[in-house]
């Protein structure tokens, strides 16, 4: 696993480069430009704007310039938000998105592991079947369906929580739940399956023969190996949460990175979109790297490899 983590680090830069190049050329190959929507622009103003942002240069030169900026940690200026750099826009949105994302991740892991563990301990019983059916339903509940329903019930009908906006901790809760629900269902299914398999292992029989109570058997002997698949899931889950956050931020009107991305894409704000894609890409890679490390820490056999 350590070698896998090292491999991940080695491939991180080329991966990001591919990501940037793909997005960059895709955007420049597409019809339309960043200043199309402002119809009344005089041609000379448009030309000056283009010159200001170097949009009049050949595409490969622009790409080189962009990469050069990246080397200095410069994501460039936003084409739409006047006088703002992409980095500052991301810095504004990141804490907001991170708060919702972290809350959702925490919720998904804690809730999912608890539900999965209960189901595994009552395997094939009524409770197990009920919980797994719920998990299947949860898996089929996209965030953009859950989010409006949550608003309808908890904000509009009951008036317990704000329907949107970004105003203190209470505005984290509903978006986090909407984001977490499908992931929680996935964790519950993973945990249940893995814990069920582990509880059937010969060394669990040894533990039972030692006279250990079931509580110790589950928590000391079985949970750690059963969590390995959950840990592997964290990588894709991070990507899933980021994707989900795009809609959830839209629905709740949260000023996070996801909204910048959608706005930026719609407005052909090349630099902003590139910056966000790059940021997300780096985050997902970092997450996967941490997952590899965590996997190695959890599984003593993996450390040798």
């Amino acid at each position: 696993m350590l070698s896998r983590a090292a491999m991940r680090l080695l491939t991180a830069l080329p991966t990001l480069l591919v990501l940037v190049a793909l997005s960059f050329f895709l955007m420049h190959a597409a019809p339309g430009g960043p200043f199309d929507s402002e119809r009344s622009l005089a041609p000379e103003i448009e030309a000056r704007l283009a010159a200001h942002f170097h949009l009049d240069e050949p595409v490969w030169m622009q790409f080189g310039r962009y990469l050069g900026g990246l080397l200095h940690g410069d994501l460039g200026p936003s084409l739409q938000y006047e006088g703002r750099s992409v980095a500052s826009l991301i810095a504004d949105g990141a804490p907001v998105s991170a708060a919702v994302g972290a809350a959702a991740l925490l919720l998904a892991i804690i809730g999912g592991v608890a539900i999965g563990a209960i189901a595994a301990m009552r395997r094939d019983g009524g409770l197990d079947r009920g919980l797994m059916l719920l998990a299947l339903v949860g898996l089929s509940l996209p965030s953009y369906v859950v989010a409006p329903l949550l608003i309808l019930v908890f904000a509009l009908a009951l008036d317990w929580l704000p329907a949107g906006g970004w105003d203190g901790p209470s505005s984290v809760l509903l978006p986090a739940v909407a984001l977490a629900l499908p992931q929680m269902a996935a964790v519950a299914r993973l945990t249940r399956g893995a814990l069920g398999d582990v509880l059937a292992a010969p060394w669990i029989r040894t533990a039972r023969a030692k006279g250990l109570p079931e509580r110790l058997i589950v928590f000391r002997h079985a949970l750690k190996p059963a969590l390995l698949p959950v840990v592997s899931w964290l990588g894709p889950a991070a990507a899933g949460l980021m994707t989900g956050s795009v809609v959830v931020e839209q629905v709740f009107g949260i000023p996070g990175i996801g909204r910048y991305f959608v706005q930026g894409a719609l407005n052909r704000d090349y630099t902003l979109v590139l910056g966000v894609v790059l940021f997300y890409g780096a985050l997902v890679i970092a997450f996967n790297f941490l997952v590899d490390l965590a996997y190695g820490a959890l599984d003593p056999r993996a450390r040798l490899e």
Partner: peptide, 15 residues
């Protein structure tokens, strides 16, 4: 390891 959905969004918006 890539946030794929963003590509799809880009494709849809751009083309």
């Amino acid at each position: 390891a890539l946030p794929f959905m963003f590509f799809v969004i880009l494709l849809m918006v751009l083309f």
